[in-house]
């Protein structure tokens, strides 16, 4: 049976993981390769690396990091952040990334999705969408949630699928950081609307939240950062819990 995926997300800057990583048993909590190997060992089904490096010149360090991670890791991983051209994607895939995640650049230039899908295959194109619910409407935001677009979430996701997105990574800004659970009602609506996998993001606080997003939210995968980095939830116990709820997971 196809299993539900658990995906830790790592923020990287200048080739090192940053923000909210608290691992006492690692020699160096900032070492992305070591952290990736740890999560793979724990049973993570995939990893996402989000590059928050500000400047263009620093991109080289990201490519070097992707290469180092790919050399060590035997599970799939996605790289996101600052990708705006097919050339950017080619470089990352050649370095060993399995998928790329695009966000703002796809909203600004939707044809980027189809360009990437036809050149590299839909399977490696993850379209990440940040949206906020306000005044009865889900609105898409850019630049890490700082810029409102006026675009309706559901319209945009249908468009992304039509253009060839292989997966949707949906982050609810209303839920992100609250630790009160994922945006399950909206996730379920998205999951029924499109025929590609939906990754739930934003709001994980405990194991029950993951079960809820797989059952009520109909999500195909769930992504989280801090609950894993601070060991509030450990992947083996999370997966055992999900299994006890009859949710198919890889153990």
């Amino acid at each position: 049976m196809l299993s539900k995926r658990i995906i830790p997300c790592l923020d990287v800057k200048d080739g090192r993981t940053v923000k909210g990583v608290n691992f006492v048993d690692l020699r160096d909590a900032g070492d992305a390769v070591e952290l990736a190997a740890y999560y793979a060992e724990q049973g993570a089904d995939e990893l996402v690396f989000l590059d928050i490096t500000a400047t263009h010149e620093k991109r080289k360090t990201l490519v070097e990091l992707v290469q180092k991670v790919a050399k060590e890791l035997n599970i799939p991983f996605t790289v996101g952040g600052g990708i705006s051209t097919p050339e950017d994607v080619g470089v990352l895939l050649n370095a060993g990334a399995d998928k790329v995640s695009i966000n703002s650049s796809a909203v600004r230039n939707p044809n980027l999705i189809s360009e990437l899908a036809s050149r590299f295959g839909s399977q490696c194109v993850v379209v990440a969408v940040d949206a906020r619910f306000a005044a009865g409407k889900w609105e898409v935001y850019l630049n890490g949630g700082r810029l409102a677009t006026g675009i309706d979430l559901f319209d945009w996701i249908l468009e992304a699928e039509r253009l060839g997105a292989g997966e949707i990574l949906f982050t609810s800004m209303n839920h992100d950081g609250t630790k009160n659970g994922f945006a399950n009602e909206t996730l379920a609506k998205l999951s029924e609307m499109v025929n590609i996998p939906i990754i739930a993001s934003g709001g994980a606080g405990n194991r029950e939240h993951f079960a809820d997003t797989f059952i009520e939210g109909k999500a195909d995968a769930a992504l989280a950062a801090s609950v894993f980095h601070f060991k509030e939830i450990e992947i083996p116990s999370l997966k055992n819990y999900l299994k006890s709820k009859n949710i198919p997971v890889r153990i």
Binding site: M1, L2, S3, K4, R5, D45, I75, P76, S122, Q123, G166, E167, N195, I196, P197, D220, A221, R250
Partner: peptide, 28 residues
């Protein structure tokens, strides 16, 4: 949903390629 994406179980294993692999183990 298509693509079939993620970890799924290998069944009815045969031959030398699957030596040491137990049925119902997951592959990507």
């Amino acid at each position: 949903k298509v693509p079939h994406m993620g970890w799924n179980q290998l069944e009815k294993l045969n031959g030398a390629l699957f030596k040491g692999v137990v049925a119902m183990e997951f592959a990507y």
